[in-house]
């Protein structure tokens, strides 16, 4: 956990040894007519102040559902939390009262959504929507809240904030809208921000600007950031550690350089190999064969086994535990784990 000596305020309730946010063995399923879709199957991760955790995975891997569960915005029904804990500063948010939870949402833990155009209310001005944070959580007057909104828009570098505060979301460009989303999440200087594919809906040039802004603000406010993405390029630049998800489980977690250098799970390796590379120009792009499993019928054993070149009998019968990864001589590698029976072969050749 990085320690920032100047920032005493973020440690107001920090107890040594207790992570800022911890997800423990979370299970979420969706009830459908055809049966239960198991979206999240025992996910655990932690985020500390000033730390960026990237959660990587394909659509349907459970990364967004986990985030929605943390925020408490999962639609229930059809969603159902069947097990686990979400600890914020050591307190389980799944068992606290709905009213207490509401006061944490937006204030202590905030979320940035993928598509700012649909995530912002189309009929309310951005100033109103930003100001709402201060009015609801801080009891500010409408006028003060609007002044705060202008400040926030300045902070995320929206030009002419004062003139644009009364504009509506559709009057902004995609990049500016996403900045407004970021400003809204940032409004009350939360401890944790969850960004659910914050740049997916933007053009590449704007993507970089928005990502840089997010990283900068995270540093300035020493927040914990959970960055949900399927874009390996975005991750490499900003994340401290990565959790790779597949079929509702974390299959590998590692510090970012470690993971890129030597993946310890065949799925991670497949993902890294499928990044297009200039020196492979003219050759066919690599793709992991097969499709992600249906969440109604996750294969027995390791969920990845039907698509895995290394799969052997044990992979079809036994679920591999998320085990600590070590060097060949047994010295532990900090913060690395893999849910593969054959992680040794995968990482060390």
């Amino acid at each position: 956990m990085p320690i920032d000596m100047d920032k005493t305020d973020v440690t107001e309730a920090d107890t040594p040894g207790v992570p800022l946010l911890e997800v423990r063995d979370l299970h979420v399923e969706f009830r459908t007519r055809e049966g239960a879709a198991k979206a999240v199957n025992g996910v655990s991760y932690t985020v500390d102040a000033g730390e960026t955790l990237a959660v990587l995975g394909e659509s349907g891997s459970g990364k967004s559902v986990t985030a929605q569960t943390i925020m408490g915005i999962l639609d229930t029904p059809p969603g159902r939390i069947t097990g686990g804990e979400i600890l914020f500063r050591g307190e389980d948010m799944l068992t606290m009262s709905e009213e207490r939870r509401r006061t944490i949402r937006g204030d202590k833990i905030a979320m940035i959504f993928q598509d700012a155009l649909s995530a912002l209310n189309p009929v309310l001005s951005v100033g109103y929507q930003l100001g709402e944070m201060f009015r609801v959580h801080r009891g500010m007057s409408r006028k003060d809240a609007k002044a705060k909104a202008v400040e926030l828009m300045d902070r995320v570098r929206i030009p002419a904030a004062k003139e644009r505060v009364n504009d509506f979301p559709h009057q902004f460009s995609g990049g500016m809208r996403q900045r407004i989303m970021i400003a809204m999440a940032l409004a009350l200087e939360p401890d944790v921000i969850i960004a659910d594919e914050p740049t997916t809906a933007l053009d590449v040039t704007v993507q970089a600007q928005v990502m840089d802004l997010l990283a900068e603000l995270q540093r300035d406010f020493t927040m914990g950031l959970i960055l949900i993405t399927h874009d390996l390029g975005v991750v490499a630049d900003v994340a401290d550690k990565i959790a790779v998800m597949y079929a509702g489980r974390i299959v590998e977690s590692a510090p970012v350089e470690e993971l890129y250098k030597r993946p310890a799970h065949p799925y991670t390796k497949g993902l890294l190999d499928s990044i297009p590379r200039l020196d492979h120009k003219g050759k066919e792009l690599y793709a992991i064969k097969g499709l992600p499993p249906s969440l109604m019928a996750i294969p027995g054993g390791c969920a990845f086994n039907p698509r895995c070149a290394r799969a052997r009998d044990i992979c079809r019968t036994e679920v591999p535990p998320l085990a600590d990864v070590t060097e060949p001589d047994g010295t532990p590698i900090g913060g690395r784990s893999s849910a593969c029976h054959f992680w040794k072969e995968t990482i060390h050749g």
Binding site: M71, G72, I73, D75, R102, T103, I104, R105, G106, D107, A110, M111, F113, D115, S118, A119, L120, N121, P122, E132, M133, V136, H137, M184
Partner: peptide, 15 residues
């Protein structure tokens, strides 16, 4: 009711 902006409203911690 299920629109994205309603999800945002909940995430903002509005009553």
């Amino acid at each position: 009711r299920r629109a994205d902006y309603m999800r945002t409203a909940r995430a903002k911690g509005l009553t």
